[in-house]
Write a protein that binds this DNA or RNA. Structure first.
Lengths: 251, 251
DNA sequence: TAACTTTTGGTAAAAATGACATTAAGTATC
DNA sequence: GATACTTAATGTCATTTTTACCAAAAGTTA
């Protein structure tokens, strides 16, 4: 396989990369808008929730939508995602991960806007979106009550949920949705809510504990009308150690 | 949680979405370039390969890079990915899947370019990139001989490989890399190349066959200096049926 | 025909899973 | 303070799945 030419596009067509970069025609190709849409999952009382805003301006005025915004020309997109979530919840450095890119030509009526979905998990009790600058017009909605959303946000949500369900099986991301101290039954209820399946209590307990990822606290549940359960917290340090040794989390 | 306002950005900052869309300031936000970079995996003689081009123009002239191109303003990005791969291999409708978006401000010296990685799997014997318009300057390179690539392409490749390794465990994508008819040992060698692990031959065989996803042909290997193995082909239809019933492929 | 190589089918021990029973430890009621 | 009640926590056992390994079978080569 000998080298012949270095054209990066079919013959006869002009390449954007094959010309010196200062000759690139900005006007033709550099007219995209880029945005980020956040799928923020929360969990409260055995129910999986999602953070939505209600649109007050065209397009899609009055419809529910995912919180999102255009990315600034000098802003990294990961940073933009963090910014949006910070404005929404008042909290920095939240766990966020890309889901997919949505690049249909006609997905935004205002022009060509490429958007990237990000999903995030937060403990509702800990982070009240009302306390932030975005407070107004922001709601936690039960996942199975979500109506058709603006733009292609219904697709973005659907994909994000699927990715969450996959991740939660293979990475201990679920712990982000719980308070720092939790009972095993809480953890189980969380998994059941996300995956909607149900597990045998004793077996679930054994499986989780056998991974040695939880630290048993010397503290019990309070204010329950029955025997209180032991509280645990997630051992992040230990998890990182195990990962380094080739361990892989599974369900 | 009562509705109060509908502002989508922090107070005092102007929202892009909260104003009528015809007022959006195109000049400020709509100046991104969008591109697609393809990570095309191939497989030949027990080695995992990747399709690279050699850049012949600035920036990064002379360096190896992933095949990619800017997306046209009126082109869906999935379509752009297919276009690039078609120009490269002469083949339409190849299996392609997004990996991640790369949105660092300074990732492209020519301006703000957001790129999306796509990965793809092809049977090298079947699709010779030399037969296409891109023929020149396109090479299959052994995965462990890949040098540092132009732009952030080394990162894109690294991420794509990781995603491939994950997918191959949970979806029968690996078959895309093999000829239509193959022996079980070939399949095993492919998995071992992708995941770099090794499996017990007899057990691998049992596991794969127990899924009932392979059709045993009445045909054997040819031109091998020992007992020829039975050839199989992948039963796509059966796979779709099983998936519909909730089956999930695993390793 | 014999030696050789790889395929193919099989077996048995070990480990993981799943269903279910039992005991323990707290709260609530009288 | 005794008893009932509820859920936590532990334990057992049959079943299935995984893993390691052996041996026969079927072709090729000499």
């Amino acid at each position: 396989m000998a080298e012949k030419t270095i054209s990066a596009v079919p013959k006869g067509q002009k390449s954007q990369f094959a010309v010196p970069y200062y000759e690139i025609s900005y006007d033709k190709f550099f007219q995209f808008g880029v945005s980020v849409d956040c799928v923020v999952f929360g969990y409260h009382e055995n129910r999986l929730k999602i953070l939505l805003i209600k649109r007050g301006a065209a397009p899609f005025m009055g419809m529910w939508a995912l919180p999102g915004d255009l990315v600034y020309p000098n802003e990294n997109i990961d940073v933009a995602a963090q910014r949006i979530l910070r404005d929404l919840t008042g909290i920095d450095n939240l766990f966020m991960e890309q889901t997919k890119v949505y690049g249909q030509v006609d997905r935004h009526p205002a022009g060509r806007v490429i958007t990237t979905g990000y999903y995030s998990l937060i403990d509702i009790a800990k982070h009240d979106p009302h306390a932030s600058a975005w407070a107004d017009g922001v709601y936690w909605m039960d996942l199975d009550e979500v109506p058709k959303l603006a733009f292609d946000h219904s697709d973005i949500l659907k994909d994000a949920l699927q990715i969450l369900q996959q991740r939660v099986r293979h990475q201990p991301v679920g712990f982000e949705l719980l308070p720092e101290k939790f009972a095993l039954a809480d953890l189980q209820a969380l998994y059941e809510a996300i995956l909607n399946e149900s597990y045998d209590k004793a077996n679930f307990r054994k499986r989780i504990l056998s991974m040695n990822l939880l630290i048993s606290l010397k503290e019990n549940q309070k204010d329950v009308p029955h025997r209180p359960a032991r509280l645990y917290k997630f051992d992040k340090q230990r998890y990182d150690e195990l990962i380094a040794k080739g361990f892989s989390f599974e369900l």
